[in-house]
Structure formats: C-alpha cells, structure tokens
Design a protein around this nucleic acid. Structure first.
Length: 631
RNA sequence: GCUGUUGUAGCUCAGUCGGUAGAGCACACCCUUGGUAAGGGUGAGGUCAUGGGUUCAAAUCCCAUCAACAGCUCCA
C-alpha cells in the first residue's frame, strides 16, 4: 500500500492546479478554466509585483528573487538586510494600497538576454534566472526540465520592473485595495529554488481576491481552521497526546480517543466481513529480504527506521502490510474457485518521516492502516475494483463525508521510479478507468500520482472548510504478484497469475481521526462521541437517581458519564458544552418523580422533559443507525 | 533534515533593568442544595525543557542538546 509521501501532504491540502489534469465526468471530458487563465491569477501576480515595488521603496538594498501567484494568493521571496516584523508589513501594505489607488498601467516589453542582464545587473537572483531561461534547465540527472526560452519579457508598473512571463492586470487601479492582505501571516524562511543548501530568503505571503467579501471569507476560514485544529481539540477533549519520552510522531491514544478509534475499527471490520473480507493478523516486523523481494526497500529506504540487527538477520519495522499478506496467500495452493481472496488487517506500520513533516495525528511515524489486499483473477478485476469503490463510498456516506472527488493517479512517463512492464501498467490503468466509468464516478487523471508498482484511485475529501485531504486509496497491482511469483490454478489446470488490489478507505486511523476532528470541530456524530450523554443531577440528592439512569443507558449500549461534582447545575452545563457532548440529561425532583430526564442538546436546543424510556429509544436508534442528527 | 520562533503548575499564559515564581482554569477540602452558559472560601501543586557557561546572584544573559510550532517543489 502506498500512502502519500513527503512532501505530499502540502500538495494534498493546497493542490496547485496543474497543466496535466483533465477532468472526466460521466465519461465526457472537458477542460475547466485553468487557474492560470483566470483574472484572479493575474490579480495575484500583479499584487506580488506591487508588493515587490513597495518593499524595494521601503528597503532599497533588498534583492528580489521570485514572486509567483499560488493557490489562494501569492508570495515574493526577498534577500533582505534585516528581519521584518508585523509593523514593517503594515507599512508595506499601506504603500501597496496607495499604489493601487493610483493609475499605473502594466506594460510589457520583449528584450534580449543581454539587455535583461544589463537591466538586472544589481539583482543576482534575476541574473541566475535569465541564465537558466536562456540555456534551459536540467535536473540532477541531466534530464531537460525546461526548454530554452524563446524570448524574455519585462513587465513594468510605476517605478518597478520585473523579469516576468506575465500576464498581468491592465492597471494597478483595477485591483481592489481592500481585497488583499500581506500582514495576515508573518514572513517565513524559504530557500532560493527550494534548495536548503542555497541562500535562505525571506518569503512574504499575500492573499488577494476580487472583493473584500471574498478576502474576509478567506480570513475567516483561516481563523476557523485554527479553532478546529485537531491538536487543540485533541487536548481539550482528551483524545490523544504525544510525549517526547515515547517519541515524536508516535501518538498515545487516551481513552476518549481510543474509544472513537475502536468504534471506527469495529464498524469497518464488520462492514468488511459482510463484504467477504477475511481478517488476518501479521507481525510488526519482518525480515528485510521480504521487502527487498517486494521492492519496497529501495523505494522507501530513506523513510524507514533503521533495520534491526539480530544475530545474522536483519529485520525492518514494517513500512507496509502487503508483503505479509502476500505470504499468507502464498502459503497455500490456490484454485480459481478460491478467488477473490480478500485479506483485511488493521496493520500498524512505521515510517521515518522527516521531523519537519510531523504534525499531530495527520503526519506521524507509526500509524495503523485499514488495509486489505484482494487477490483476483484478471477477469474479476474490474468487478472487484467496482465493489471496493462502492464499499469506500458507503463508508464515507455513513460518516457524512459527502464532498469528495476521485483522482486516478497514473505514471509520469518521464520518470523512471516505477517498476514493471509497460503493458501491465496500461492494463491496470485501463481497468481503473473502466471501473470509474462503470460507476459513473467523476474523476481526474493525474500523471505522476501512481504508486511505484501500479496506478491508483484516490479519494480526495473536502471538509467543511473546503480544505482538501487525501483519504481512501485503491491500487491495482500486477507487479507484486510477479515479484512474489503468485499463482492460482485455473479451470483448465494451468498456473495463472492473480492481480492484486490494495485498498484502504481511511488510509490511516490516525490521520483519518485527525481529519474527522477538524471536519466536525470536535462535535462528532453521536455514535462516534466518546461520551454520548452527560447526566447532570441538580443536587447530590439526585445522584442516586442519575446512577440508576446511567445503568439503564449503559444497558442500552450508550456511553454515559455522571457529573456528580458538588457544583451548581449551571456550571456543569457550561462544562459539558465545552466538551461537545451530544446529549445533556438534567435531572431533579420533577424528573425523578416522573422517571424522566430533561434533555438538552449540544446545539443548545432544549427538548424539555422526556420519559427515560423515550430517550433510550431515541438515543439508541440514532447511535445504532449512525445518524448525524441528535433528535 | 534545513531556517526561524517558542519551551515557566495538568491546561492557557504573565513574570520589568539579572536579586531565588504568579494568575485563570482544572484538582482537593469547607460553605452553598441551586431547574439549563461558569456561587464563595481555603489549600495543594513548579530542578522555570535538559546540560554546561558568565555572574556575588540566572526563569531572565551566552553555548549546546531535546521538543513543539511555522516555513522550506509551487520554477521569471
């Protein structure tokens, strides 16, 4: 199973629109307006130039590097004589607004390389760019990654001229001075050309929109994202903790988090059993030869924990579960009548992610994959693939995750990091596309997003804040069966090779839980909530009654807690609200006499008094049916 | 991994010019027994991340280590 690699997470959250993306809907392909062609793109690009102008006026000795538009905004990298603070940004921002209120046209002119060099004689970064543009660029392996530019263009507004491909807006006064901000984010370090061996520059990020309303909405989403940060909510709700004594990137699940995870696991395990999967269990380490055979070892060498030496053998903390499952398949002679074989395991794997990549639960060094490997005949492939996708769709739908898209990741034809025959790759890719069409599943196709052994289908989920997360993945694999020489006996008695499907709806329990925390902002559907009902006895005279209510609710399978502290009821309610507990059951004399509870929802809605039996019925059906609503 | 910022009570944070540590929440106890968003009092709790250095004196200044946070392909 190949999961997103560093630095993939950045790309998942803020995907940069690319040229090689095609959107297929119901089998019909069309090209949406590319971001690069949009007015917003030009606004941001032009705003970056205006920022550079303002900064050069402010700090004339600064050297300018590059300043492209990016998703949601733009940045410009500078080599500065001193660090910038919030006040500097404010001043630059004010000057930018002034430039935007004035009338300065953006003008372009074509120049020769020599003219450009002469113009930028005091700007070493620009000189380097000019040289690269003139010569074309090659990567470390000598492969050409950019053709020599046929011409160079200079764009000028007011007193500022930049080496730039364009395009720009017509005039600085067409940009809304109230719809951008550079001071929403502190300047950060970035390396010249992303190379940590080279000069560190100061990057100033900006965001720009057509209207102030769009800017405010964007800033609001950033605030909201901060509020929903799963690390903050995880602390507040007692879900998990990460301590140095255990290790960075190695989260500890506290009881409240563990019950959520366990609930997800038990549910998915049952769904899988209902769909013909068989549970298997495999160890956390394996002989290094296993991974050399699978081909994982060279590909993942840099992101694995060092091998464990023991006597003459070397073991690896397992970076993935597939080789283990393959060995289970291989332990018996298989008949075509046995296929498909579907092995499922919540398998914990370990990867040595770079320390700077680690982030709460969403980027860790040890995580559990809701993994399964299907061994199918070539004839069964499309049907099984379709069934896997349906199962994933069912899982997402149950969780109320309805805004997702699918991405078919295929090989980058220019890269040599893939293994296996071209013919097999084409077969696998065709099978995935065919399955998508059969399902009517809208999907994009992206080059370079395949696993090293085969193409895949990823589900990209957009949460309530419209942030993108890569969730489940399904991969078709002809290569590992070949490497491990897997076989089954066909109807005619010949030995045939099965095809493998790797799949994981959640991807990793850690990451998935982190995403759920942020998506729901800690207000989980009742069936996932660590504590489903908090019982609030009004005085300690009512604790005894609360205990009998708790027993009834627990017998009905609900997770409940009694707040028997000697605080005032109002305070207990305030505390419960902070914990986002779905149901709050207040009980005093009136309730005890009526064998009832007074029900208040997490949403602050007061349902009033309700017979206990009625609440039990309501709550258990909501939990049992995994409904999102609370009444 | 690289760069920067940060590290003080379980949590969130204050701590001035170097003079041996504080608040709120949480916790314990006492008073209060209250019907839907935080009652009052008392108390306990800290090798100021770790190790070294400077100084009569270090939470504070310097160095190193560890950890957290942010940024690090987005190719003029």
């Amino acid at each position: 199973m190949s999961l997103p690699r560093s630095p993939g997470v950045r790309r998942e959250i803020s995907p940069t629109p690319r040229y090689n993306v095609y959107l297929f809907t119901q089998g019909v392909s069309f090209m949406p307006e590319r971001y690069q062609d949009s007015r917003l793109f030009r606004i941001r690009h032009s705003t970056a130039h205006i920022m550079a102008q303002a900064l050069l006026e402010y700090l004339p000795e600064a050297k300018i590097a590059i300043g492209p538009p990016i998703e949601d905004g733009f940045y410009y990298d500078f080599d500065l004589p001193r660090a910038l603070n919030a006040d500097d940004l404010k001043q630059i921002e004010t000057r930018m607004k002034q430039i935007m209120r004035e009338d300065h046209a953006f003008n372009v002119r074509e120049v020769s390389a020599d003219e450009a060099r002469a113009f930028f004689k005091d700007q070493p970064y620009k000189i380097e760019l000019i040289d690269d543009l003139v010569n074309g660029r090659v990567d470390d392996n000598g492969n050409k990654i950019a053709e020599p530019a046929s011409s160079l263009t200079l764009w000028t507004q007011d007193s500022f001229t930049d080496l730039c491909r364009g395009p720009h807006v017509e005039n600085t006064n067409t940009i809304n001075p109230d719809a951008f901000s550079i001071s929403f984010k502190m300047p950060a370090g970035a390396y010249w050309r992303g190379d940590e061996k080279r000069q560190q520059l100061t990057r100033i990020y900006g965001t720009a929109w057509e209207t102030k309303e769009e800017l405010d909405e964007y800033l609001h989403i950033l605030e909201e994202a901060k509020r929903r940060d799963h690390r903050v909510i995880g602390e507040k709700l007692g879900l998990f903790t990460i301590v140095p004594m255990v290790g960075k990137g190695l989260p500890l699940w506290k009881p409240n988090g563990a019950i959520m995870r366990d609930t997800l696991e038990r549910w998915l395990r049952q769904v899988q059993i209902d769909n013909g999967y068989q549970p298997v269990v495999t160890p956390h380490i394996g002989n290094i030869e296993l991974y050399k055979t699978s081909g994982h070892y060279p590909y993942y060498k840099d992101s694995q924990f060092a091998p464990i030496q023991s006597d003459d053998e070397e073991f690896l903390l397992k970076p993935m579960n597939c080789p283990h499952h393959i060995m289970i398949y291989k332990s018996e002679m298989r008949s075509y009548r046995d296929l498909p074989v579907r092995y499922a395991e919540f398998g914990t794997v370990y990867r040595y992610e770079q320390s700077g990549e680690l982030n709460g639960l969403t980027r860790v060094r040890g995580f559990t994959v809701d993994d399964a490997h299907l061994f199918v005949t070539p004839e069964q492939l499309v049907e099984e693939f379709v069934n896997v996708v349906k199962l994933i769709q069912y899982v997402f739908a149950t969780l109320g995750l309805d805004d997702f898209s699918a991405r078919v990741g295929i090989r980058d034809p220019k890269s040599d990091k893939y293994t296996g025959d071209d013919a097999l790759w084409e077969q696998a890719t065709a099978a995935i596309i065919q399955a998508c069409q059969q399902l009517g599943l809208p999907h994009t196709v992206e080059e370079g997003e395949a696993a090293f052994y085969g193409p895949k289908l990823d589900f990209i989920f957009r949460d309530v804040l419209k942030r993108r997360w890569q969730l489940g993945t399904v991969q078709v694999d002809y290569n590992l069966p070949q490497r491990f020489d897997l076989e089954y006996v066909a109807a005619d008695g010949t030995r045939q090779r099965p095809v493998m499907i790797h799949r994981a709806p959640f991807g990793s329990l850690e990451r998935f839980t982190g995403i759920l925390i942020e998506h729901f902002g800690g207000a989980f559907p009742a069936w996932l909530s660590p504590v489903q009902a908090l019982l609030v006895p009004i005085t300690d005279k009512h604790v005894e009654y609360a205990q009998s209510v708790a027993a009834t609710l627990r017998a009905a399978g609900l997770r409940v807690e009694i707040d028997s502290s000697r605080e005032r009821m109002q305070k207990k309610i305030a505390a419960a609200r902070e914990r986002l507990i779905p149901w709050l059951l207040v009980m005093g004399d009136r309730d005890r006499e009526a064998n009832a509870v007074s029900v208040r929802l997490r949403t602050d809605e007061d349902l009033g008094q309700m017979p206990l039996s009625q609440f039990v019925e309501m709550a258990s059906s909501i939990v049992g049916e995994k409904r999102m609503e609370l009444k």
